[in-house]
Write a protein that binds this DNA or RNA. Sequence first.
DNA 1: CACAATTATGGTTACAGTCAACTATTGTCT
DNA 2: AGACAATAGTTGACTGTAACCATAATTGTG
Lengths: 159, 159
Amino acid sequence: MSTKPAPNEAPVAEFAGQLLFRLWRASHTRTADALSAVGLTPALFALLNVLGTRDGAIQQELSADMAIDPSAMVTLIDELEGAGLAERRRRPNDRRAWEVTITPKGRRALERSRRAAAEVEDEVLSGLTAAERNELLSLLRRALGSVPAPPPWRSEEED
Amino acid sequence: MSTKPAPNEAPVAEFAGQLLFRLWRASHTRTADALSAVGLTPALFALLNVLGTRDGAIQQELSADMAIDPSAMVTLIDELEGAGLAERRRRPNDRRAWEVTITPKGRRALERSRRAAAEVEDEVLSGLTAAERNELLSLLRRALGSVPAPPPWRSEEED
DNA sequence: CACAATTATGGTTACAGTCAACTATTGTCT
DNA sequence: AGACAATAGTTGACTGTAACCATAATTGTG
């Protein structure tokens, strides 16, 4: 047994970025495959996931949340809306902005997607114990929380 | 302290894949920026990094190591060779295969790149202590080690 | 009215991923 | 030896997507 009987399996000093990328890609391809059964892409699932907790936020806030370009957010919402999973409605005070809400259908799709994503996560992190997975997620969240955002779409921090 | 005085900073239940992606992207853009001073891209740096420890491996082994398509490896090596950072030479026993070696110039570029990448890593993981960074890297490596490789470029395991 | 903010549209670049076809070399079989 | 298959690499095309940027349309603000 063992899937790595390779003789010259040198460590190959790797940096965090490379490890993150390879584990992400392993997760990404599997997630994309699993989500296709729900009719979603990883990007749409990520947005739906945000909408699950930030329901009613406007596009600007959503794009800042997900750290993507506002124009990319337009496309994502278009697709969600086209699939009947989310809806746009004008914000009462400011009719320039669109509040995005998740539909009941969208919430059902979200639940199914979450289960699918959880299964993939189980598989990808199968080498870690439950405690270690929590530790990993905790470390990732904390690292992310203290990373300043240099890109143009910085959130609305500051005055 | 805390760089997040935002009022509505809800948790937003995130999955490992999404966390990995966002932290990777933060690292990737900064690494790409830092490496441009050395004249390298993150992909070329990753290959050079592998060559640093797997010097003399043939392209097939390298592409399996990095989990990329053999045809993509051709392009990467072309660029490294064009920049004088690596060289191809026929394998003595099997003249179909090319052993790839790193040149002295390539090793110098690798050292500079490593320092640049280490600085980026310091910045990206600034929210974690040294012990936590090691823990994170260890967890990532172990998770990666137990992820089966479903893609087509599986290594030469099995008959 | 001048100007900023929010969203929408479109175009451009770049790159990863996939795939098929092709050359050159090696190994196998009779 | 010759026919044939397998291996290693190369090339090129194609797809999809991310990222970037400029600009317009609408609405709000001073």
